[in-house]
Nucleic acid binder design. Structure first.
Lengths: 194, 194
DNA sequence: AACTGACTAAATGACTATATTGGTCAATAA
DNA sequence: TTATTGACCAATATAGTCATTTAGTCAGTT
């Protein structure tokens, strides 16, 4: 019969999403996937590689969502906000990343940490690409795209997730206008030469 | 004899700085301070209160350093950078905060967590005050001072500490010009009406 | 040739014995 | 009488143990 690899991946994703990396056993994955445990090892070198394959799949899906949020005709900051919002909502709501994030906080499981690192790298390289495009188009002032991507993501996470840990959460429109205020226009009064 | 409370505080600060909250024992503090253990409890209700008194002292010193960095005649962003740099350098280099930060990461010790929270709150209220002043002076556009303080601190920490975890660290001048670029002037080209 | 699950060595974690620690208070010193 | 002390105690943390679980293998089955 075919589809063995797919059913293993499906079962593993489900288990990782429910129980995390540590909490998932290969026996359990085999059982859910209705295969012998040995079969898993014909497709994946070990538990970590199975986990990584699922992460890579997940990142692929994230990329599709991010690119779908970009409209060539819209200005950079509109696209930026839409894309970041979609990506981070997706991440935040998806059981898989919730569980992995929790596991990193609670146990510091190394493969889970590396997974979050991969997510961040994917987001950063997506941002970097679009920042470079915006600079080329003349929409943004000249700046280091890598550093700018890093700062933008950090700022966005601060506004969207960290602020609401101690204050009233901000809605989508507020976030967009804050991003404009802080990042697009700048806070200084009457400085820019036009 | 007098100076008992002071010598307890001194001994405790030294021990907390060397061994963290968990790693510090009341027996040890008593020994270093050359007092009987019971004496500590005549001045402090318990270990946590002793710890808090030291934190409050530390924050006081931080405040002095921060205010000293402010020069009424300089523009807001010059003062901001100078003050944040001084505060965060002070924190970064001081054995006490190094140890506490490490302890929070490693064990999540609650009193240590609360201590870091207090540090952050102190910095935030300092920033908030000076942002409000700058708005009143007409140096900054109108914005929520609390939220702006929060975002500025986050951005600053990202640039100064988090960036260097995976890249070449930025020097003082670079940091200042980045802060100007991202925050004072904004990234958008030819948008501001003058 | 593809697949399986009993098997093994290694890792885990429940359990317990032991040691340490925060806090108290009767005894002591001033 | 008042301030100080350190032996003491209950609570907690640590170290050591061992039965259980788990990742990964491989001889045997389909």
């Amino acid at each position: 019969m075919s589809g063995r690899k797919e059913s293993i991946l499906k079962a593993a994703e489900r288990s990782f999403a429910l129980f995390g990396y540590k909490g998932t056993t290969m026996d359990q994955v085999a059982k859910i996937a209705n295969v012998g445990k040995g079969t898993i090892y014909t497709f994946f070198k070990n538990k970590e590689e199975l986990f990584n394959e699922i992460i890579d799949q997940f990142i692929q899906r994230m990329k599709v969502i991010a690119e779908a949020a970009i409209d060539e005709n819209d200005p950079f900051f509109v696209n930026l906000h839409r894309a970041l919002y979609e990506i981070l909502s997706f991440r935040k709501e998806h059981q898989f990343t919730i569980k992995i994030t929790q596991e990193v906080k609670e146990f510091g499981t190394l493969p889970a940490k590396q997974a979050l690192g991969k997510f961040e790298d994917a987001i950063l390289s997506f941002l970097e690409k679009h920042i470079q495009l915006a600079i080329d188009k003349g929409e943004l002032v000249k700046c280091d795209p890598k550093l700018t991507a890093f700062v933008m993501l950090r700022l966005y996470i601060a506004i969207v997730f960290e602020w609401e840990q101690r204050h009233e959460p901000l809605d989508k429109e507020e976030i967009a206008s804050l991003f404009d205020l802080y990042f697009a226009n700048g806070l200084e009064k009457n400085k820019k030469t036009c």
